[in-house]
């Protein structure tokens, strides 16, 4: 181990301290600038491979919430947010019911009973080049 004079030791310590504090300061500044106030809502949702949804399937997507339907003609998705105030709908034997204010919708999303006045929203579904089912949340 080379001899280190007292002066060199103090110089090295000073530089180490300055370097560490500079790096920490830069890190804190970068973190401050990069801190997201709100996590932006995803616009698209990757639902998986096409083969995961066989023809004739009706797959609830509680995280959206929506219902993904695959027919011989392709994919469609029905938003399960009530068009009255946005409550999440419950699936029933023949359609959907709003637990908040009682609106009823048929399997195609048409209003059977208010207070909702508009049919359920259909969400666009596309197939990516790699064969994955992509749901777009904004119609």
């Amino acid at each position: 181990m080379p001899d280190l004079s007292r002066r060199d030791f103090l110089k090295l310590t000073t530089r180490l301290l300055l370097g560490a504090s500079g790096l920490i300061g830069l890190g804190m500044f970068a973190r401050f600038l990069g801190h997201p106030l709100e996590t932006p809502a995803p616009v698209e949702v990757d639902l998986g491979q096409v083969d995961d949804f066989p023809p004739g399937s009706r797959t609830p997507l509680p995280q959206v919430p929506a219902l993904l339907v695959r027919t011989e003609a392709g994919f469609t998705a029905l938003s399960l947010r009530c068009t009255h105030l946005g409550c999440t709908l419950d699936a029933q034997d023949e359609g959907f019911a709003c637990p908040c204010h009682g609106s009823l919708f048929d399997e195609e999303g048409r209003v059977l009973r208010g207070p909702a006045a508009q049919a359920l929203v259909r969400l666009p579904v596309t197939i990516s080049e790699s064969g994955r089912v992509i749901l777009t949340l904004e119609p």
Binding site: T14, L17, L18, A20, S21, G22, I24, G25
Partner: peptide, 9 residues
Amino acid sequence: VLIAALLLL
């Protein structure tokens, strides 16, 4: 400068 660095740490 050294004191400032220590304070920052």
